[in-house]
């Protein structure tokens, strides 16, 4: 303490000098217009630069949160598109319908936790389960097309039967000519699936879009699946055998959306009645 006082006394001129200079500059900056402007401008430049840098760093840390929010927003938008499409189709001859029809499909964004891709029967494991509202039978889509159907569900995980699974059967149709068929996978190329049960009188062209028929409980109508890459009719067969190229590589997916159809139980009951 005594040393400190000695120090202050010894350098009192310096301390007084610094103090008075600070006071003067305070006066300059506060009571002179042009200096004030220069001061505030340059300090803005300085602090602005720091703020921007800090924000960049912060952005980096909040990427995950932003990703999630973008994902849920995406889900909401896609949901709207699907619902509007359905509504417009079903209401073609009706002028008025309650807005409830717009809420038939709900999308749940989910991350992919595990994959099997090179087997004969391929599955995805999703990071959400019953707790998030996922039920067996729901369809799974990605940004560009369909992925598969939820097969089993635990509380926090669920298993998806991919398109590239030999057991998968998904109702589809050719978009332009409206002929229905079924998507199966009976080759080994993960980018190609097969559309079967299209009658030989149907009009088929390479490049035609294949979309979901909307007859099943899993998928909304008109969800894109892929394009016709090749087709032929085997001798003595009454149906086409069509190769459909998928719009994306399933192995590259990290995020998917599960389609929650509002009337899923009602419709599945109805379908069962028909089958009886």
């Amino acid at each position: 303490m005594r040393n400190l006082i000695y120090l202050i006394i010894r350098y009192s001129a310096l301390f007084v000098f610094i103090l008075l200079e600070c006071l003067s500059f305070y006066l300059i900056v506060n009571y002179n217009r042009s200096q004030k402007e220069i001061w505030s401008h340059s300090s803005n430049l300085f602090t602005g630069g720091i703020n921007k840098r800090m924000e960049n760093i912060q952005n980096y840390f909040s990427l995950q949160v932003q990703n999630d929010s973008l994902l849920s927003e995406n889900a909401r938008l896609r949901e709207q598109i699907i619902n509007y499409r359905v509504a417009s189709k079903e209401n073609a001859f009706q002028e008025f319908e309650s807005t409830d029809t717009l809420r038939k499909y709900h999308l749940i964004p989910v991350g992919v936790c595990g994959k099997t891709l090179n087997l004969r029967n391929n599955y995805f494991t999703l990071c959400k389960g019953r707790a998030a509202g996922i039920r067996p039978g729901m369809g799974v889509i990605s940004d560009k097309g369909i992925v598969g159907i939820v097969k089993t569900v635990s509380n926090h995980f669920s298993t998806v039967l991919l398109l590239t699974n030999s057991q998968s059967r998904i109702s589809a149709r050719i978009k332009d000519s409206n002929y229905p068929g079924t998507i199966v996978w009976n080759n080994s190329n993960p980018r190609i699936v097969n559309l079967i049960e299209v009658p030989r009188h149907a009009v088929v062209e390479i490049g035609d879009s294949i979309v979901c028929s909307g007859y099943s409980i899993s998928f909304a109508p008109d969800v894109f699946i892929g394009r016709i890459a090749d087709f032929k009719i085997h001798e003595g067969n009454s149906n086409y055998s069509i190769d459909v190229e998928l719009s994306e590589d399933l192995s590259a997916l990290d995020f998917v959306y599960v389609i929650d159809y509002h009337y899923i139980e009602e419709k599945s009951n109805q379908l069962e009645l028909e089958n009886e």
Binding site: F17, L20, E21, L23, S24, F25, Y26, L27, I28, V29, N30, Y31, N32, Q35
Partner: peptide, 11 residues
């Protein structure tokens, strides 16, 4: 010019 000459003279 509050402060300008004061700062200079102190200096």
């Amino acid at each position: 010019s509050p402060g300008v000459h004061a700062a200079t003279s102190t200096f």
